[in-house]
Design a protein around this nucleic acid. Structure first.
Lengths: 128, 128
DNA sequence: TTTTAATTACGACAACTGTCGTACATTTGA
DNA sequence: TCAAATGTACGACAGTTGTCGTAATTAAAA
């Protein structure tokens, strides 16, 4: 799997990547069905975007049968990391903490989740 | 200050907004100088982007003197909130926790900052 | 006053995106 | 076999963005 800096996906491409990360290898039809749940868009539009993504090497595809199967070519965690990095720089003045506060502030997060974060923080403190 | 859903800024517009949030009301020159520190771009480019932003009502300006003074017209916290929301939905399957983990994982965060987050979490747990 | 400098306005341009209609190819089933 | 259904390919288009050259305007300085 490619670990080069990612050829920055657009908003729409990101949505599709997210679907591919969830579904694993999938056809245009699969992706479009998922996408259509939240977005009013045509089949050929989805197809075209995925073809663009192929050009950018954001996905790979198996075209051995008529029905092409697409797979995300970028690592989910890496993409998440780069995005978070970007946001922190651009919107939170380089402070991860400010981002964390925002993320937790406007969200209902369960006690168990909060506990997990606390645990994570403990480990991190001792490690550093 | 406007609290309507924000007319979504582009990447470049976001950089400029961030500068305006830091500087407060500022001229194109001020903004461009800041911007030029990290980005190789022409003065008129910055100007044009800021004029676009005026059109979108992302900024306001005082044009009473020759030297126009621009002010961010969107609330920083709201913009941050909407961005974080978007990211969580699009890239983290709706889980704020996953975002938090990412943000803390790839960053050197000081112990004191970590402690602040922990404190924040404690308060949040008891409140909820 | 005249020149120079600083600023803004305007227009042009290429690249990228999302959108879709339509053509083409392939498979399926009647 | 042949028509229908299912997919993909291709091309066109409009809107947005970032980029910048250059013109116009205004203020400051000589």
């Amino acid at each position: 799997m490619n670990t080069q800096p990612i050829n920055k996906p657009t908003e729409s491409e990101l949505e599709i990547l997210n679907i591919l990360w969830t579904l694993g290898p999938a056809t245009v039809k699969d992706v479009h069905e998922k996408l259509a749940l939240t977005k009013d868009t045509g089949y050929t539009t989805t197809l075209k975007i995925m073809q663009n993504m192929l050009g950018k090497q954001l996905v790979t595809r198996d075209a051995s049968s008529k029905i092409h199967v697409y797979t995300a070519a970028v690592n989910q965690e890496q993409a998440q990391g780069e995005m978070v990095q970007k946001i922190i720089q651009t919107m939170f003045n380089g402070s991860a903490m400010q981002l964390v506060m925002q993320a937790l502030g406007n969200h209902k997060t369960s006690d168990s989740e909060l506990a997990m974060i606390q645990e994570y923080l403990e480990k991190k403190k001792t490690k550093q």
